[in-house]
Write a protein that binds this DNA or RNA. Structure first.
Length: 932
RNA sequence: GGGCGGUUAGCUCAGCGGUAGAGCAUUGCCCUUACAAGGCAGGGGUCAGAGGUUCGAAUCCUCUACCGCCCACCA
């Protein structure tokens, strides 16, 4: 006999379970053509990270799917791993260096990278260990890292291959530059922050000395130093006579042309735009079309360059102040007005982004993106919930080429070399490269990229130049965007570029589970890469979940100090409670708000499961599963079995549609609201007798068929629900399922996790009929009505009372129920005896109720408070009356009876009859009461 | 500027054409040997507002207001 404590202790259960699963090899998977695979590749967390609520949610969702499919019999594989995290990770280590008073340049590239690797070695796997703590069933033998050998190989191969296919190219473009991280960023790596700025209107005088001016508006006056034109719309009549004219750029005293370009919106401001090709993406395009020169006045360090004349060396902020002051002094400033606009910031360090011209590597995404969009349009990649499909496709069909190169050191170095000998480099340029071997200056890199030889694109270091045979070749200093390797993750983890068995068996994977914040950053790019390089999309389904927020709807962040640490929650409430709370809050398509309180309910549920199981187990100590014949079953047995089967089927449907929250809630309400609240209480009649455990000896000793049927059903239903709950709450269910098996003498080596999700006995036994279901409803309604009267008349819960029933007007079927299943009412309503009375018998001094078509009386000699009873009954009559009026209105509407489905009309009529009868009976009692 | 989501009980949220729901909080009674992290019963809502479609609208459509996200070469 197993002894279980009366309060569930998660720590005790959790500490041992995971190791047992590991020991049984339940997380591993090998290709097996006889079974269908179910595969998930983890969204690799950054090595910098420690587990936060978002990870906990994301990985619990995946774990639920993996465990559910495993129990369904699929060959499940979940590949874990981490991402090197490019800029984010480099920032972390640079911060550590800063505390030592050093920069990465003090160490040099090689030493710095050694330091990075050492740091990764020491702390990089923390998060993977934390995933074990929350129970994730990953195949740890396949743990990968985006910079491990195989992944790096995949990255190199992909780059070279895409270059060969002319999908990767080198170009001088306007890029998003973070002056703090000192690198270019892709468009999707920006965060836009709403900012209350100003719009300055500046007068540019015509160069003809006429004194006429043209007013332009700008939010960034300092960039005017780099203006090389002013643009107006070609059809703008206001400027028709300006064709061919030039302006004199204030402060710089340069002559700049007026150009005509359709990109200008004549309705905005004055309809004239200053054109700064080097510092504004739109202007860059205008300059290209209009063939304008570029003036780069802002440098990579965020300060003004020599081209800014007397402003050189100033920071942007200082420069703006000085420019404004000088414009005012020269009477060029027409007005200044407040203006709200959004400013691009670095998604890693929140520094304001400067659009700057730079030489970078790009990926041509136009065609790839169109193909990716198409894949979703024809459901080769299905998005759940569907509401994300539109934004996803919209982004795919509108994005610009992807800037791949980053000017940092941590990452995959671009597999491109240049020959210094085959080049057109002069002595000065060679000298600069020699003086700046780590390319701290953007200009050094530019020399290399644009003046050295054509790029030699190779997976491996060519060592010597393939053209001239000289050894003076030098590798491109940049590394690849961290999302480049992430984009290859589903194929690289399965062995690509090798044609592995894994790849042919597990690819495409089944589902990708992720938050919507990286839908574009990551998901879209995986689809593009998969289609292009592996000739097939990387996953069939994309399951998008919400973002975890605090109880005020704010994103959790350290700076806001509103973070709820999943590890704390696990310690306080248990891992299963954490998981259940997360899953049941994961409503498709919606973000979730969590507070500490969110987990209390789940903790209580775990305890409920524990105690219900404890009850079942203590009653099964002498039981062996027999497969008892159905005719031995009680009404309640048939009822709960049917309800259980229905519940499990509903849960299956919810899981298949990725509505795990519904699945969790469905199980919760079945287990607590039906199994515990009703079935277990009813089973006690056969296990403990009518009067409860104190009754001695029990009138029905637990060896009868009736008791056996109850035990059989308790065992079967508990077994089933534990299995269904296991994917969500793996620890407690595993523990209890093991204890159940042991109690029943069925001890096996197996784990619940490896068990099939179905208990055949439950699904094979004949289901309850519709009549059975209706019978249970009537009995439950009777019990509830009885309890209500007792409670409202202050009958002490412990006190047994006789129950008088007038069933004169009841259906024979219902009356028969009370005769056959009177014990249900006796036990659950604490009734000593049920006596049927005739129509004329008016029980004196009794509280009355109506349930189904019974009139119920509880004699309360001397205890009854007539006033209170009158009030109670009148109140119920009033509410019934309201009901009745609504029904009446509906039924008397000819349109309703004519046009509504017959089923609805019948329902309304039945209900009308029912309510009328109930109201009449109550009124009779009221009248009788008045007479007393 | 475009798109998406939200507005339902004091709080957090389900429901998304046919009698308004859950958890927490609250009130009353109960330490009934599975569980007080519990049981039983109760109170509490013109489902943001205005129109429309429909026999019938919290649910579908239109508009409005407020909140939150996402996208956009927002000068």
């Amino acid at each position: 006999m197993i002894e279980l404590p009366s309060i569930y202790n998660p720590e005790q259960t959790e500490s041992k379970r995971y190791d047992v699963w590991m020991k049984h090899g339940l997380f591993g998977s090998q290709p097996d053509p006889k079974r269908s695979p179910f595969t998930i590749v983890i969204p690799p967390p950054n090595v910098t990270g420690s587990l936060h609520m978002g990870h906990a949610l994301n990985n619990t969702l995946q774990d639920v799917l993996i465990r559910w499919h495993k129990m369904k019999g699929d060959n499940t594989l979940w590949i874990p791993g981490t991402d090197h995290g490019g800029i984010a990770t480099q920032n972390v280590v640079e911060k550590m260096l800063k505390k030592e008073g050093k920069t990465r340049h003090d160490l040099g590239r090689e030493t710095f990278l050694k330091r990075m690797w050492r740091w990764r070695q020491d702390t990089g796997d923390t998060i993977l260990h934390q995933l074990r703590k929350i129970g994730c069933a990953c195949d740890w033998d396949r743990t990968r890292f985006t910079m491990d050998e195989a992944s790096s190989k995949a990255v190199m191969t992909a780059f070279v291959e895409l270059y060969r296919r002319h999908l990767i190219y080198r170009g001088r473009r306007l890029v998003n530059w973070c002056p703090r991280c000192f690198t270019a960023l892709a468009d999707v790596e920006l965060d836009y922050v709403e900012s209350a700025g100003h719009l300055w209107h500046i007068r540019y005088p015509f160069a003809d000395g006429s004194g006429r001016t043209l007013v332009v508006a700008t939010t960034r006056p300092e960039t005017m130093l780099g203006d090389t034109a002013v643009a107006v719309h070609p059809d703008d009549k206001r400027y028709a006579d300006a064709r061919g004219k030039t302006l004199r750029l204030p402060l710089m005293d340069r002559e700049i042309p007026i150009v005509f370009d359709a990109a200008v919106d004549p309705a905005f401001g004055t309809g004239a735009v200053k054109v700064t090709p080097s510092h504004d993406a739109a202007d860059f395009e205008i300059a290209r079309r209009q063939n304008l020169p570029h003036e780069m006045v802002v440098g990579y360090d965020g300060r003004m360059t020599d081209r800014a004349g007397k402003y050189a060396g100033l920071s942007l902020k200082e420069c703006r102040e000085k420019v404004l002051a000088d414009l005012t002094a020269g009477d060029f400033l027409e007005k200044e007005e407040p203006y709200k606009h959004s400013v691009a910031t670095c998604y890693r360090c929140a520094t304001v982004i400067e659009p700057l011209e730079s030489s970078q590597w790009f990926m041509k995404t136009g065609d790839l993106a169109k193909r990716a969009a198409h894949a979703t349009e024809v459901d080769r990649v299905q998005i759940f919930p569907e509401s994300w499909e539109k934004p996803y496709i919209h982004w795919l069909t509108n994005n610009r080429d992807w800037c791949l190169s980053r000017q940092i050191w941590w990452g995959h170095r671009i597999p491109v070399w240049y020959c210094l000998r085959c080049s057109r480099l002069n002595e000065d340029q060679l000298g600069q490269i020699a003086r700046d071997p780590t390319f701290q200056l953007e200009s050094t890199k530019m020399i290399l990229r644009e003046s050295a030889s054509d790029p030699i694109v190779r997976e491996e270091d060519p060592v010597v130049c393939p053209r001239c045979g000289k050894e003076e070749i030098i590798q491109d200093p940049d590394v690849l965007d961290t999302w480049f390797s992430s984009a290859l993750w589903p194929i690289s983890t399965l062995g690509w570029p090798k044609k592995t068995q894994d790849l042919s068996y597990y690819y495409p994977t089944s589902v990708l589970v992720t938050g919507h914040e990286i839908l574009y950053l990551w998901v879209a790019r995986m689809v593009m890469m998969g289609e292009e390089l592996a000739s097939e999309v990387p996953f069939r389904h994309v399951f998008i979940h919400g973002i975890v927020r605090d109880k005020h709807g704010k994103k959790m962040s350290k700076s806001l100090n509103n973070v709820i640490d999943p590890l704390d929650i696990m310690k306080k409430f248990g891992t299963d409670a954490l998981r259940f709370a997360l899953i049941s809050s994961a409503i498709p398509g919606r973000d979730m708000q969590l507070s500490d309180d969110s987990f209390v309910g789940a903790r209580n549920f775990a305890n409920k499961i524990w105690n219900a199981s404890r009850f079942v187990l203590t009653n099964l100590s002498d039981h062996r599963r027999t497969g008892l014949p159905p005719d031995k079953m009680d009404l309640s047995d048939r009822w709960i079995r049917r309800r259980c089967v229905e519940t499990l089927k509903n849960v299956d449907a919810f899981v298949e549609g990725y509505d795990l929250a519904q699945a969790a809630r469905t199980l919760y309400s079945f287990f607590w609201g039906e199994f515990c609240d009703w079935y277990i209480e009813l089973a006690k009649i056969r296990l403990q007798g009518l009067g409860g455990p104190a009754e001695n000896p029990p009138p029905k000793p637990p060896t009868t068929d009736a008791a056996l049927a109850a035990k059989e059903t308790l065992a079967t239903v508990l077994d089933s629900v534990l299995r269904a709950l296991h994917p969500i709450m793996p620890f407690i269910t595993e523990e209890l399922w093991g204890a159940l098996g042991e109690t029943l003498g069925e001890k096996t080596e197996g784990c619940l996790m490896a068990a099939p999700g179905r208990v055949p006995a439950l699904f094979d036994s004949p289901a309850a009929s519709e009549a059975d279901m209706r019978a249970m409803e009537v009995l439950m309604e009777t019990v509830t009505a009885l309890r209500t009267v007792r409670s409202e008349m202050n009958v002490p819960p412990g006190k047994s009372v006789p129950l008088l029933v007038n069933a004169q007007n009841a259906l024979p079927f219902n009356k028969g129920l009370l005769e056959t299943y009177g014990d249900y009412v006796k036990r659950l309503g604490k009734v000593s005896e049920i006596r049927f009375i005739g129509k004329g018998e008016k029980p004196a001094q009794a509280a009355a109720a109506v349930a189904s078509d019974f009139e119920l009386f509880i004699p309360l000699e001397g205890l009854i408070d007539f006033e209170k009873e009158k009030q109670r009954l009148s109140k119920e009559v009033v509410s019934l009356d309201a009901d009745l009026q609504r029904l009446q209105a509906r039924l008397s509407n000819p349109d309703f009876t004519a046009r509504a489905p017959q089923e609805e009309v019948t329902k309304a009529k039945d209900r009308h009859t029912e309510v009328t009868a109930k109201k009449q009976r109550l009124q009779t009692h009221l009248a009788a009461l008045a007479k007393d």
